[in-house]
């Protein structure tokens, strides 16, 4: 599509970052599929009933499925930890700086921009302009913040859910069981929270802004796109002489 115009492109991502994104996506997919297969009571009706049955049948028992889920989860955590350790300065720190929504004002601003963007989707508030955005727009910043915290929570609660019963004697100390139960709540709540954002994330990537999807494959993106969507970033890039 874009090659007919051969617009000016700029490299915004390294290969390893792209790899990490798709690795993350793959892990999430696997963990969601296996996780929904494991947790199956009416108590946590996460998936249609056929799914746990299918998955548990496929893996010949829920204990095997638990192992698959745990191994993928552990790999996910391990790769992330490794990535953070190796690329903290070059990638992670800038990303965190760009993404974390830490003040109420920032949150308010981001929420407003997100609302306007969403409203445009449904053809309302046409006269209101989306305020100029940085490298990550309001919605992305909010989702990113959420994902970072939810991922930490998922990793921690997941580790306890898996290792807790092996390490602690729940019968001896009621607290261990209580932590388990709340870890379960935290685990599920985090997944839901991320999923809510993920729906929008995928929609925009697949339907609205195909180019951003391309960018997550090649690492390059057109300057026009940035100019149009991320005005502040464009300014920044210009200042830095990158475009």
């Amino acid at each position: 599509m874009s090659d007919t115009n051969t617009p000016q492109m700029v490299k915004v991502r390294e290969k390893k970052t792209i790899f990490l994104h798709w690795f993350n996506a793959t892990c999430w997919l696997l963990l969601l599929l296996s996780g929904f297969g494991m947790i199956s009571g009416d108590f946590v009706r996460l998936a249609p009933a056929f799914w746990p049955e299918f998955m548990q049948g496929l893996f010949n028992g829920n204990d095997n499925l638990v192992w698959v889920h745990a191994i993928v989860g552990l790999a996910w955590v391990a790769v992330f930890v490794l990535f953070v350790l190796l690329n903290f300065k070059s990638v992670v720190w800038p990303f965190l700086k760009n993404v974390l929504v830490l003040t109420p004002m920032a949150a308010l601003r981001d929420t407003w921009s997100m609302v306007v963007t969403l409203a445009h989707l449904f053809g309302i508030m046409k006269n209101t302009q989306v305020p100029p955005q940085g490298r990550y727009n309001g919605a992305q910043r909010l989702l990113g913040t959420m994902i970072i915290f939810c991922s930490l929570l998922l990793a921690a609660s997941g580790a306890y859910l898996f290792f807790g019963p092996m390490v602690f004697s729940f019968a001896d100390d009621a607290l261990c069981g209580a932590i388990f139960r709340w870890a379960l709540v935290a685990h599920a709540a985090s997944v839901f929270l991320v999923l809510v954002g993920l729906v929008a994330h995928i929609y925009f990537a697949v339907v609205e802004e195909r180019e951003s999807l391309e960018a997550m494959k090649s690492g390059n993106i057109s300057v026009d796109f940035i100019k149009h969507h991320n005005e502040l970033w464009y300014d920044e890039l210009k200042r830095e002489g990158k475009v």
Binding site: V44, W182, V185, V191, L195
Partner: peptide, 16 residues
């Protein structure tokens, strides 16, 4: 925890 899961997290998540 069970009640929260059942009555808050689960419905909120599914509705969300």
């Amino acid at each position: 925890a069970g009640k929260v899961m059942e009555n808050v997290v689960n419905p909120a998540g599914v509705i969300g």
